[in-house]
Measured scan of single mutants.
Amino acid sequence: MSIQHFRVALIPFFAAFCLPVFAHPETLVKVKDAEDQLGARVGYIELDLNSGKILESFRPEERFPMMSTFKVLLCGAVLSRVDAGQEQLGRRIHYSQNDLVEYSPVTEKHLTDGMTVRELCSAAITMSDNTAANLLLTTIGGPKELTAFLHNMGDHVTRLDRWEPELNEAIPNDERDTTMPAAMATTLRKLLTGELLTLASRQQLIDWMEADKVAGPLLRSALPAGWFIADKSGAGERGSRGIIAALGPDGKPSRIVVIYTTGSQATMDERNRQIAEIGASLIKHW
């Protein structure tokens, strides 16, 4: 067993022997301040990774656009098919120029040779490549099948209805392509620590998230040296922004954090800054 596999296998073990965790309302004060600064709703939840206990939450059962955070769930569904012998990570998928959609920095470079399922998941999570996500959605049967996968996990809230990039439209009061912070946090925890996926697939999923290259201005910008984070960000229309993450000190994750916002007129930089400040408060009061 590799060191990384050992780390993920012992996530519940280490967490069980940690000192009790206590909620700190100071972080919620910052979440509410972010709402004021952005002029928009902000949803927040913080779960203990081992027990699933909610440590703090704000608007945990209000719907927010998922945006690209759905790509972690998508690759979880792909990995479940791999575990069941219905898919192979090494299978190569070929596609054409007509398949390319807006923001496809990886797939646009491989029109000639195609990409493997493993490479597509890596591109979808680490670079948020939209064509990679659409190609992977095709392998599982489309958005409705991802929703069905989530329902089978016990998540009857999260739903995907459309493809990239239309799913980022974020129309107010439109339930399409949305989740709730509580539902997303619980589902992410199941994917990373539950028995739904094999140990190898859980490790692969967290490795992809740990290698995320496009979430630097968010929670990662607030992390002290030595902290662990595996995350996936999302951005959408109407001032929408979000991030889902597993993080913790001492090089291992111990909490799940989900943050979503929508309806702001603020710039992307300002949305990023507010999420980073929430992260800084979380870490300060850990």
Results as ranks from 00 to 15, higher is better:
177 D>R: 09
140 I>S: 07
83 D>M: 02
35 E>L: 04
25 P>H: 08
246 A>Q: 04
161 D>I: 03
240 S>G: 06
61 E>Q: 06
156 H>E: 11
213 K>R: 08
32 K>P: 05
25 P>E: 02
48 D>K: 14
173 N>S: 10
43 G>N: 00
187 T>E: 14
195 E>G: 05
201 S>C: 13
180 M>G: 07
68 S>L: 01
128 S>H: 03
40 A>R: 08
260 Y>N: 12
71 K>P: 01
157 V>P: 06
214 V>G: 14
91 R>N: 05
177 D>K: 07
191 L>D: 15
162 R>V: 10
252 K>D: 02
144 K>E: 07
137 L>V: 03
136 L>W: 05
85 G>E: 15
233 S>C: 12
77 A>V: 00
263 G>I: 15
248 G>N: 06
250 D>K: 03
286 W>M: 05
243 I>T: 09
80 S>H: 11
130 N>C: 13
54 I>S: 14
24 H>N: 14
171 I>Q: 06
226 G>E: 13
47 L>T: 08
93 I>W: 02
280 A>E: 09
43 G>L: 01
261 T>H: 04
199 L>V: 07
143 P>T: 09
179 T>A: 09
212 D>G: 12
83 D>C: 06
67 M>R: 12
32 K>G: 04
206 I>G: 13
142 G>Y: 07
109 K>Y: 15
140 I>V: 07
246 A>L: 07
91 R>Q: 12
243 I>E: 06
24 H>G: 07
115 M>A: 08
52 G>M: 10
155 D>N: 13
247 L>H: 13
226 G>P: 07
241 R>M: 06
243 I>N: 05
29 V>P: 04
135 L>C: 12
152 N>Y: 13
206 I>S: 12
188 L>G: 10
26 E>Q: 08
271 R>N: 04
40 A>C: 10
211 A>P: 04
216 G>D: 05
36 D>V: 03
193 T>P: 07
282 L>P: 12
106 V>H: 13
165 P>D: 04
206 I>A: 12
241 R>Q: 07
141 G>E: 02
210 E>I: 07
71 K>Y: 00
65 P>A: 06
25 P>Q: 12
97 Q>D: 08
182 A>Y: 07
285 H>G: 03
91 R>P: 10
148 A>F: 12
55 L>Q: 08
192 L>V: 02
259 I>D: 01
125 I>Y: 02
92 R>C: 04
31 V>Y: 06
121 C>D: 00
62 E>Y: 00
277 E>D: 12
58 F>T: 00
140 I>K: 09
261 T>L: 07
56 E>S: 14
179 T>N: 08
68 S>P: 01
263 G>F: 11
170 A>H: 07
89 L>C: 07
108 E>H: 00
66 M>V: 01
232 K>W: 01
208 W>R: 08
210 E>S: 10
215 A>V: 06
142 G>W: 08
268 M>R: 03
39 G>K: 10
124 A>T: 15
130 N>Q: 14
177 D>I: 12
97 Q>F: 14
233 S>L: 07
62 E>V: 00
172 P>V: 12
156 H>T: 10
56 E>G: 15
211 A>R: 06
257 V>W: 03
31 V>F: 02
237 E>I: 11
137 L>Y: 11
101 V>R: 09
157 V>A: 11
138 T>C: 06
83 D>E: 10
135 L>M: 09
215 A>T: 05
100 L>Q: 01
268 M>W: 02
52 G>W: 06
145 E>S: 05
195 E>Y: 00
249 P>L: 09
176 R>P: 08
96 S>M: 00
256 I>N: 12
99 D>G: 10
46 E>V: 12
232 K>P: 02
25 P>V: 03
132 A>H: 02
187 T>V: 13
29 V>Y: 12
193 T>W: 08
245 A>K: 02
184 M>N: 07
39 G>P: 06
199 L>K: 05
47 L>E: 09
146 L>R: 14
171 I>F: 04
78 V>H: 10
42 V>E: 04
284 K>T: 08
284 K>S: 08
184 M>H: 12
280 A>I: 15
43 G>A: 04
251 G>T: 11
143 P>D: 03
84 A>L: 05
137 L>S: 14
193 T>V: 08
185 A>P: 05
212 D>Y: 03
239 G>R: 11
276 A>R: 09
131 T>C: 13
112 T>N: 00
163 W>N: 11
263 G>M: 07
60 P>L: 07
103 Y>R: 08
151 H>A: 09
134 N>S: 07
70 F>H: 02
175 E>V: 14
102 E>P: 04
48 D>L: 08
231 D>I: 05
117 V>N: 00
51 S>D: 01
200 A>K: 14
132 A>W: 03
236 G>Q: 03
262 T>L: 06
242 G>V: 11
59 R>H: 04
236 G>K: 06
198 T>R: 08
134 N>W: 09
136 L>R: 05
202 R>D: 05
49 L>E: 01
84 A>I: 05
62 E>H: 00
239 G>I: 02
136 L>T: 12
286 W>H: 04
229 I>W: 02
111 L>K: 09
25 P>M: 12
247 L>N: 14
87 E>Q: 11
281 S>P: 07
91 R>Y: 14
148 A>I: 02
109 K>L: 13
37 Q>W: 11
